[in-house]
């Protein structure tokens, strides 16, 4: 996904004089050519994430469309107040593109992880949040985001599904069943499909948790049983689902990265298992919960 971002952003900088890229050293080498060709619109501010967002806000105030990029923990967690004030409160937007989703950086430890980025962005009004599950979904999402001025968070991961879905801004049913709706966000689709093999459930996929497709949710949730599987902090979308189904009796299971600092290294697969997000863990949670 990171390569898809680099290729697409490089093309956008070439083709659209409104686009500007702001970096804080991360991925700077990959944009060296672009920076050489467009030194005024490919800006590396050094290891300065507060300034990266401040600069993005300033660029947007002059009418450009900034893309800011780093690890999620530096881009969002560290610069949260800049995102809140230098973008949102100024009435301008930007495209924030992160790598290092949740525990992608597991071997580097907790300092390089951000399972809470989506929840942090979700505290702010007006943001569209894309969590692609496949590299093939990145280019269309980024290109579409570059064409307007609203705030967009694009969260890239090294975890990927087998197939790219072009039409997954809304809930896209991938498997049909009767007992429950299982919503898989972004790269959780692959483990969810494996976990639900042989179960009588509908599996629906989306790469866009904000705005959440509540209309599709109401249509697909006829059973009243909804399981939500998100690749970031568990519970992040519970308030949206609860509100969308407020007028109906329903049961809601919310799975995601658990609320703890494991103080552990290892692979992303190790972390998925410890958070119950591997196929076996998901299947155990789902079968216990299913009516």
């Amino acid at each position: 996904m990171r390569q898809a971002f680099i290729d697409t952003a490089t093309a956008l900088i070439d083709e659209d004089p409104r686009t500007a890229l702001v970096l804080a050293d991360i991925s700077a080498a990959a944009f060296e050519q672009a920076a050489f060709k467009h030194p005024d619109r490919v800006l590396n501010v050094g290891i300065r994430e507060q300034l990266m967002i401040g600069v993005a806000g300033g660029l947007a105030l002059t009418g450009l469309r900034p893309i800011a990029h780093s690890y999620a923990t530096f881009l969002v967690d560290r610069a949260y107040e800049q995102i809140k004030l230098d973008l949102g409160h100024q009435g301008v937007g930007a495209i924030l593109v992160s790598v290092g989703a949740s525990y992608d950086g597991s071997s580097a430890g907790y300092t390089h992880m951000s399972p809470m980025d989506v929840q942090l962005i979700d505290t702010l009004p007006g943001w569209t949040i894309h969590v692609p599950g496949h590299p093939g979904e990145v280019a269309p999402l980024l290109t579409a985001a570059a064409a307007h001025d609203d705030p967009v968070y694009l969260r890239l991961s090294t975890q990927t599904n087998d197939i790219a879905y072009a039409d997954a801004a809304l809930l896209r049913p991938v498997r049909h069943g009767t007992k429950a709706l299982v919503v898989a966000v972004g790269p959780m689709l692959a483990p969810v499909l494996e976990a639900t093999r042989g179960l009588d459930v509908t599996v629906a996929y989306t790469h866009t948790p904000r705005p959440f497709d509540t209309t599709g949710l109401r249509e697909l949730a006829a059973s009243g049983n909804v399981a939500l599987v998100e690749p970031y902090l568990a519970g992040t979308s519970v308030h949206v689902i609860s509100q969308a189904l407020a007028d109906r009796p329903h049961r809601l299971l919310s799975l995601g990265v658990t609320h703890q600092d494991l103080h552990a290294y290892g692979t992303p697969a190790d972390h998925a298992r410890r958070h119950g997000l591997d196929p076996a863990g998901l299947r155990a949670s789902l079968t216990t919960w299913l009516p």
Binding site: Q50, G54, L61
Partner: peptide
Amino acid sequence: SSGSLGHGLGLGVGTALGLRAQ
């Protein structure tokens, strides 16, 4: 819009860069 301290100079640098790029 300001109030929280330490935001204006970053926004100003970005504004200057945006004007120059155009």
